[in-house]
Design a protein around this nucleic acid. Structure first.
Lengths: 166, 166
DNA sequence: TTTACTGCAAATATTTTGCAATATC
DNA sequence: GATATTGCAAAATATTTGCAGTAAA
């Protein structure tokens, strides 16, 4: 453990503060520095990304600590845990991104966030029987134009090979 | 491998047929029996569920075979692979269920499917720039009434304990 | 007859756990 | 000072891979 760290002061930090206080858990430097790095990612990240980011930020922490901290951040409602494509490690994203529509390319795994005010208004008004909503996520699976082009190219070059070898 | 199996004949079977033919893969009994069991699950299932179901159906297959077969079924557009809560094994569901709204309780992990024609109509018309949609999934995270009641009960009994020990 | 498929076991990947040292409250 | 947290290593869990025997085309 290390000491003497100032904490930057935004909404997520306050949220973590409240959470730790409510649960009578400790405000360690590790937890606040990991939160800082997590919020700095422009999009989804995995545990190893955070371990690396911490090392780069001259505050190396163990993988176990990152695992336990992201668990806390999920419980505190700051991050969301997702694993959408393939078998890789779990991915995390800021909960503030969640209400955007997620466009996920099934070919390259790239993710794009789209804001849709109609949809958000509809969902905010929508109630479900016997269920209290905390948040929602709409993911659209498909193929991005880059991959569509690439696939088309590969197909046509396949055809050429077949034709010439006949 | 075993032989002499008749294949039941519904949409999913035909879909698998076309897929295997197109990819020049083999129509093994294992693949069709696993498909049959997968379609018989009323909701999400994991690989081990399928292994067990096959054993119960007097057609035991290895775990590797089930793994490779569900991969095929996902690729064929018959199943969808999901892992929404916790770190357990990957879960699968029929793609025909996907366009329903998924209500997922974050406490007990129970899933309820809700049909919403307004939402489906909106999504079917919705186009995204530089992206070709194949399907979409709306998951609503929250707490089901059963869990809400349980939590409330636990809280009030906690308060009682605190009060008496003071 | 050719080669894809199955099933076993071993390898790999991801996450959790036990425990000693240490920092927070 | 009491105990929650960190970090290491080992354990547990989930999935993939290599390979020999076998079945589908």
């Amino acid at each position: 453990m290390k000491t003497g760290v100032e904490y930057s002061c935004d909404a997520a930090v306050e949220k973590l503060d409240r959470f730790l206080k409510a649960k009578k858990l400790r405000r360690t430097p590790e937890r606040y520095r990991i939160l800082e790095q997590a919020m700095a990612f422009p999009k989804q990240f995995v545990v190893d990304d955070l371990v690396q980011a911490m090392a780069t930020a001259a505050f190396p922490v163990s993988k176990s600590t990152v695992y336990s901290t992201v668990d806390l951040l999920v419980e505190a409602g700051i991050l969301r845990r997702i694993t959408a494509i393939g078998n890789g490690p779990a991915r995390y994203e800021k909960l503030e991104d969640v209400s955007h529509i997620h466009l996920l390319c099934e070919e390259c795994g790239k993710l794009k966030l789209v804001k849709d005010l109609n949809f958000m208004a509809y969902m905010n008004a929508r109630k479900f029987a016997a269920f209290t909503t905390s948040y929602y996520n709409l993911t659209v699976y498909g193929v991005c134009n880059d991959c569509a082009r690439r696939i088309k190219r590969e197909k046509s070059s396949n055809n050429k090979i077949k034709r010439t070898t006949k």
